[in-house]
Amino acid sequence: MLTRALFVLLLVLNVGVAAWWALHASAPAAPPSSLPGDVPTLELVDAGNAIAAVRTPQAPSSSLRCWRYGPFTNPAAFEAARRAIVSQVAWTATAEQIAGAPRAWRVVLPQPDRATATATAARIGAAGFADYLILPEGGPDANTIALGRYRGETSARDRASALERAGFQARVEPVGGRVVQWLDVAATPAFDARSAALGLTGVTIDCAGVVRDGRYTIPAPA
C-alpha cells in the first residue's frame, strides 16, 4: 500500500514539472540600444563568466608638417605674407633672427589706439608693475606701452614672463640689432610648399621647435 502511494506521488510530481516547462514564458529580449554609435557600450562576451568588453570609437589620426618662408626684413611685408597664406594652413608662427649685436633689450606691449593703451596701462599698474610708459602718438611705436629696457636679454625675458603670467602679452625686442622675421606654417602633407600667393617656396623644418601662433627667436646664420 505504501509502495503504491509513493508511485502515485512521483507520477504527479513528474507531470507537474513537465507542465511548468511547457507553459512558462521566456524572458523578454533586451530592447535595442538607442545610444549614438560613437558612445562606448558594454558587451557581454561570456555570459557564464560575466566578462565585459568595451567598444571605444577610434579617433581619426592627423599629422602636420611645417615649412618656413622668408626672410622678411619689413614687419608690414611679413604680416601681409601671413594674411595671404593663413587660410591655406592649419596655423602660423613667427620666427625671429637678430642680425648684429643689440645695444640693449626692451619689453613692449603694442596697443591699437590711445584709449586702449591708457586702459591697459592702468591695469598693468593695478597688477603691481612699475616702470612703464605709454609712448607718444605717431611713428612705429605709436600707442606702445614701454615696460622696461635692459642690458641683457635674460633680464628682459624675465620681465616679459612675469607680465605674461599676469595676463599681459608683452614682447622682447633688441635695441640696435636688426630683426629678421621668418614665417613658419603647419599644414597637412598635401600642402604645396610652392606658394603662388607669396611667390616663395617654403623650406621643410622640424615641427618640434614651432610654437603655434607664437613668436620665438632662432639662431642667426653663422
Rank of each mutant, 00 (worst) to 15 (best):
E173Y: 02
A220T: 04
T94K: 10
P28A: 03
A27Q: 08
V108G: 04
P136A: 04
P75V: 03
A126W: 07
R55V: 15
I218F: 04
A25D: 15
Q58P: 10
A76V: 05
R114H: 12
R165W: 06
P60T: 15
F168G: 01
E137C: 02
V203N: 15
V86S: 14
A95S: 06
Y132A: 06
T154V: 11
L198E: 00
V15G: 12
P57M: 08
V185E: 03
G48N: 14
L183Q: 02
T116C: 07
L13M: 12
V180S: 09
D141T: 04
E43S: 12
A156R: 01
G138R: 00
T144D: 00
R212C: 07
L135E: 00
S195H: 02
A222C: 14
G152T: 13
A220P: 15
G128F: 02
R171E: 14
T56V: 13
E43R: 14
L147V: 10
I85T: 02
P221A: 06
R4D: 12
T73S: 15
G209N: 03
A29G: 10
D158F: 12
F78M: 10
A59K: 11
D184H: 03
R157V: 14
G70M: 00
V89K: 03
T41S: 13
A187M: 00
A104W: 00
R159P: 00
R123W: 09
G70S: 01
S61A: 11
T217V: 12
L200E: 07
G148I: 07
A59R: 10
D113Q: 05
L183A: 01
L183F: 00
A59V: 13
P140H: 02
R82H: 06
S195L: 04
C66M: 01
L147G: 01
T73F: 12
P36S: 12
A30K: 14
A122G: 05
L11H: 11
A187T: 00
R159N: 00
A29P: 14
C66F: 05
